[in-house]
Amino acid sequence: MNTVFEYTKGMREKEMHYCPGCTHGIAHRLIMEVLEERGALGNTIGVSPVGCSIVAHQYMNVDMLESPHGRAPAVASGIKRVHPESYVFTYQGDGDLASIGTSEIIHAAERGEHFCTFFINNAIYGMTGGQMAPTTLVGQKATTCVEGRTVKQAGFPLRMSEIMSQIDGAVYVERVSLATPAEIRKAKKAISKAFDVQKNKQGFAFVELLSTCPTNWGMSPTDAIVWLKDNMVPYYPVKKFKDVEEV
């Protein structure tokens, strides 16, 4: 019999703690499939954030460590100095990267660090129970803005890919979505491209993945997908922002 599909060796056979319909699991699998396909699982060191994905190391079959909240890009910079020939990546949520960790992500990009960052934008603080994130959309409800985010009270949501693309050391910046199978395939290509950029020592690579948090959005998984398409994509355009061959 021909094998048409196999579970990636990049994922450990563990029951996941993520909520039904959460796209963290999809993002994990895409990164691990890409590493497996390039035979790199044994030569990769990952950094997990503070957020729902703090225990990503329970699922991903690569060496990993946890970072303090927001500091993953600094941790990865240190790892890369000791193992410059290994693949190094950070996996970070929007509270982690776009709030407490803005300084570390900007300066890792500024230095043109040779690692990749996968940025899970679900427009909410998932793990702590649905507080407003810097990425929460105007009008979107959260536990610290129950009537919906207002510009008057909390200002405008932060577009991280747009910011990152202004930094010379970031040579590859793309925003993808995990809403449909076709888009998930495109997301995998972007992840693969980010690892190419790292392998070729071209500079810093950043992939933003528009994601869902059905639990804290208060929606069914299918409604969450529709909400992502109708609300997030108009504000966070899905596109390649930057692809420079050499810095």
Partner: peptide
């Protein structure tokens, strides 16, 4: 390797990463 970190927060976490990777930091 030497990095002038963007803050002490970053510096200590670079040290954390390098130590986890087995370097003398």
């Amino acid at each position: 390797a030497f990095i002038q970190a963007e803050s002490e927060l970053a510096a200590v976490n670079m040290a954390y990463g390098a130590a986890a990777a087995g370097g003398r930091v």
